[in-house]
Each structure stands twice: as C-alpha cells, then as structure tokens.
Design a protein around this nucleic acid. Structure first.
Lengths: 334, 334
DNA sequence: GTGGCCACTGAAAACGTTTTCAGTATTTGT
DNA sequence: ACAAATACTGAAAACGTTTTCAGTGGCCAC
C-alpha cells in the first residue's frame, strides 16, 4: 500500500538503516546518499512521523493552551508561537479552554498522552496555583499569566505598572471617579486590578473595581448595569480588549458620550481601537514578542532542564487616544 | 522510566492485550476490567498516542490550512473546526500559509507525513487548481474557496450573490460610481468580483474593480491611491474584512466623510464593524456553520470515500448600516 | 455425555521507523 | 608494514501499542 522505508531501501539497494541515516544526519557516503535520494524521489516516499516519534521518543510537538483563540491577543500570540515552532521543525497542538479548569485539566492530560516536548499555557488562576511541576513530564511555560513564583517559567506583562499608567493618565486628565472592570479568572487581571488600586490609593482616590467573566458580553452587561447606578464612574479602566469592547458598547447603550461623560482606557491595541470615535486609549502588549519569548524560554528549558526558573516581564506601551481626553479644562491643579 | 501498558498489565495480573481491550472497546469481563482500571489508577498510566497511531494506522488528526489565523474569519472558522474535532476525539494541526503557494505545498507534504485523517484547506487559486485528488492520500475539504468542480468537497459562500446584493443595495441608495477592491489570491475574491461586475452590468453601470493582496496594509495603500485619482469612486465594495478595514483607513486618511463622500460595503461582520461611525454595511458569513459543515463533509467523506463530490453553498446575510446610507435624497426614480 | 458455540484471554506478530551493535574496508600513525 | 583509528554499512533490536491467532473453559442443545 503506502511506501515505507523498506521500499526505498530495496529501490536503492541498501539497508533501511542507511536510508534512515541518509535522510537524517547519520554518516553516509555521498554515493549512497545520492542513491537514496534518487530512490526517495522514485518511490515518492514520505516518512511516517508517528513511527519516527515512537522510535525516537521525541515528538517534536508542543502544546499551546489558551482561553480562546478568538481573543485577538491569543490569536496574535499563537501565530507567533506557531511561526517559531514550525521554523524549529515542531508542530503545535492548539487547545481552547474557555477559562474552564476542567477543560484545562483535560487538555493537560491530553498533552501527557501526546508526549509533547513542552507546553505553552495561559492558565486560569485555579490551575496556575495547583499545577506542580512534579505532576507533569514536560516543561511548561506560562504565558500572559503567572503562577506561584519559582514553579514554572513565564512571560508576562508588567501588569501592575501598566494599569497604574492608565490611572495616572486618567488622573492627569482630570478624572477622579475612576472605576475598573477586571477579568475574574486570570492572575493577570488580578495584577492589573492591584496596580489600579495601588495607583488610586497613591492619588488619594477611592478604588472601585469589579470583576467579570473576561468576555465582551459579560463585560457589556455589567458595565451597562454599573453605568445606570447613581454615582457611576466618570472613567473606566478595562483589563483586556474584550472587556474594553463591552464597556464601549455599554457607553453607547447608555448614550454616554466618550470621553465627555465617560472616559475609557483599556488593554490590547487591537486594530479597531483607533477606528472608533474617539480612538481608545490602550496599553499595547508586545504580542509577537510574548510568543517568541515563550518559545525561547521553552527551548532553553529543554536544553537545560535544571536551570533556575525564569520570569520574563515585558512592558506595555501606552497608546494615548481620544477616549481619555481631559474632561474639563482641568483647573484643580492646586 | 515512563509507565507503559506492560506495567499496567503486570500490576493487574493480566496480559497487555487485555489492558488494551479494557481501555478500548474489546470484550473484557467486568472483573478484569475493574482490575485494569484500578491498575491504571495505581500506576498513573497514560497511553502513548504515537504508539497507538502507529499500530492502529489511524492518527485521528486533521490538518487545518488557512491563510492567516489572524484574519478574524479564519479565527472563527478554526475555533468551530477545533471544537468539532476535539468533540470527535481528533486533534487539529493548524498551518498558516500567508497565501503563499510554496508554503501550501510544504504544509500539504507535512500532512502526508503526519498521515492525517483529512485536511480542511483554504487554498490560493494557484494551488486549488492543481491539487488533484490522486496526489494525496487523504480527503481534502476546501473551505471558503473552491477548486475546479468535482475535485474536492467544499463549503463556500454564495459569493457572487452576496457581492451583487451589496451592489444592488448601493445602487438603490443612489450610488452610481461604484468601485470594487478584491483580493488577488483566492477564487472567492474572484467570484465576488464577478458578482460585482455582473450586478454593475445589470444596472447599466461601468464596473471598476481592482485587485490587491488581501491584507489591510495593501488595501489601504491601493485605496488611498485610488481615492486621490480624478473620477474616484463614490462607493466601494470590499471583498473581505481586512480589505474593508484598509479602505476605511484610506477614507480617513483622505478625510473623506463616510458615506457622504464615500460609501463602504464589505464582507465579514466582525465585532468592530458596528462600533465605528458610521457602522459598516457588510455581508455576514456564517463562520461557525462553515467550520461545522466542513467537519461534517470530512467525516462523511471518510465514512463513504466514493460518494460523489459535494459542494455546500451557504448564503451571506446582508447587514445594512450607515456606511451605505443614501448619498442624496435619491430623486432620480424616473 | 458430547459437539458446538460463545465469551473471554494471552502469546506473539505487527505497525514503520531509529538506534545499537558488530562488522568491513579504508585510512592514519609510527 | 602493521596496529589502531576512522568511516561507513547492514542485521537486528527496540519503541509502546493494537490486533491476530489460537486457545481455554463454560454452557447449551441434542
């Protein structure tokens, strides 16, 4: 049926071992190597990767486990990861957890069965906390979100600083009643909330943070509710692109002019954020860099399994747009 | 080192064959099945999928080859495909071709080596044309784009009708000098262009279509150039979401009010298209349905390899928004 | 009581490679 | 010129499963 290495060996008049070596990097004379290559062309041979993986005990496969590939942040990161992986001759298995710890556990088990070389993982807080390196047979690099210090390599944003930068900017623009809407499932959202609260405190303002499921629908619902309450915030900090979108929809639904009645500042410099009117002030994350760094951490870990755990912290870049423009001429400098 | 089926067999006091059957669906007595399950728990056994695939000659893996996962259309489709695949106990290998036939060929070869069960593929025109079923060992379902009739199963939009609907709408709104910007690499963009030209002809209008690489940057550059020319169009039809975004940026760059000086109508009802001002008129594609249908076609084909080739044609849903609102009070009804 | 069937089980082969091991021919060192 | 190292090669083992094949024992029908 399918042509195997035996057929190539027969066609080339050599042993299967020689064919294997000619295709790999074993020592083979130039003459035989050419014979083998000719035989490969003649037979149309394609190696069977399942067999190769089994015998060589090296799957050349990495798992990429994220919340939802439809979140543009993860889309971009995944593209970067895949590019790096294919370039290194590895495959990627992509899994969407929808922020569900049960599915996370299921996919981690699947990764075990796949005998993956390593995993890049954006875990929920629940899983990040309990995932001990001892339970799994492959290195894990946390991405976007970190676990307890020292457990796994990770590449994250300086979330607290980024959130604080947004608050500082809002305060500087004259806003005072600044609320925050943060994802409920990730450590990253928590850090952003902490950064927000610290900055508010530093300015002598009362923080008002709320947690929502990190998707646009939940964020819109919560924001719409909030904006209907008395004493509603005059500015909002939103902990990711989906929540930012939800908040913008809520402002539209409540017919609140931005930034006149409500200023918005969020995360993720998605392509549409400068197309809306006004443009949205956001923290731009270095998405490609995050993916590439994660792969680098993973490769380094594979090369040196016992080196100390590393945490790469990248900085966000504030992109200031109209959604946070000064509310009033800002007189209260005294 | 790692615990294998032999260890489980030893722990359970049975043969490896019995373990395999107990875990699969072979006939095993209840007593032994329980022993095996206990042994699995005790040893922490996880089957090795590489070995399983090799022996069973069934990889339970499908390839998904698209232009770029960062195109929201493909993002959404891929999520649907992956959900269906995992639900059926299959893995997905995702590949980005960037519309490059060389990369397409490379990934198709990779799919051969993976011995995938099937492939879902959004090919460039070049590859779609030359990909004969004889050359490959697995069924292929074309998605979003079709090849020559009868070669492969496919699920596509009724592109010509959708593009014509946009033209009809624009004409009805009083626009006459309607241009079109279409992707240069896919059969789908070509069909949309054909639909556009047919509709223009039907209305007695002169078509003015141009082709660009289907990405936002290229589209913006071309549109900006076009809008600077004398006799520039007063409306544009854009063949996908990226090109639509590029055109909107071009309008902004040229400071042309939409729809006052330029109406825009495009494809892909992405979340941001109703957040910009004015909202963008688009054809909404049933993205989840496309992914699900592709999987269904693939499974059907696997069950009945010799059934006639099928082509599923889905309809787009026009979503009319402000970007195509009547230019003038539309007096010329006579 | 015996033949036949059924339900279950284990030994061993098989999947398609890579890798080990042992060997041969050739080259190098002295 | 000879020992030793080097460069290459093939036979066979190994990777961890599933599947085939050949039972074994129990049960039923006669």
């Amino acid at each position: 049926m399918s042509v195997g290495i035996r057929d190539v060996a027969r066609a080339a008049g050599v042993s299967t071992a020689t064919v294997s070596r000619a295709l790999g990097r074993g020592p083979v004379s130039d003459a035989l190597r050419e014979q083998v290559e000719a035989a490969v062309r003649a037979t149309g041979y394609r190696p069977n990767l399942s067999a190769r993986r089994l015998r060589s005990q090296s799957t050349q496969t990495i798992g990429l486990i994220v919340a939802d590939i439809r979140n543009p942040f993860f889309t971009a990161v995944s593209r970067a990861v895949e590019d790096a992986a294919y370039q290194a001759g590895m495959r990627v298995i992509l899994c969407n957890t929808d922020e569900d710890p049960t599915r996370e556990a299921m996919y981690l088990r699947l990764m075990q069965e796949e005998r993956v070389t390593g995993v890049i993982f954006a875990p929920t807080r629940a899983t990040a906390k309990e995932l001990r390196a001892a339970e799994i047979d492959f290195p894990v690099v946390f991405i976007d979100r970190a676990g307890p210090p020292g457990a796994h390599d990770s590449v994250v944003l300086d979330n607290a600083a980024a959130a604080a930068a947004l608050v500082d900017h809002l305060v500087e623009q004259g806003f005072r009643r600044i609320g925050g809407l943060f994802g409920s499932t990730s450590s990253t959202a928590q850090e952003r909330r902490a950064g927000y609260e610290a900055a508010m405190a530093r300015h002598g303002l009362a923080p008002a943070g709320r947690a929502v499921l990190p998707n646009a629908a939940a964020a819109e619902a919560e924001a719409t509710r909030w904006l209907g309450e008395p004493g509603r915030p005059e500015a909002l900090v939103l902990s990711n692109g989906l929540i930012l979108m939800g908040a913008l929809r809520a402002a539209r639904a409540r017919a609140l002019p931005v930034p006149g009645a409500l200023a918005l500042a969020g995360f993720d410099n998605e392509p549409w954020t400068d197309l809306v009117d006004p443009g949205l002030t956001v923290i731009e994350q270095p998405v490609a860099e995050i993916g590439a760094q994660a792969m680098r951490l993973l490769f380094d870990r594979l090369k040196a399994p016992d080196q100390p755990v590393r945490k790469v912290v990248l900085s966000g870049r504030p992109v200031l747009r109209g959604s946070t423009r000064r509310a009033s001429p800002g007189p209260d400098r005294a």
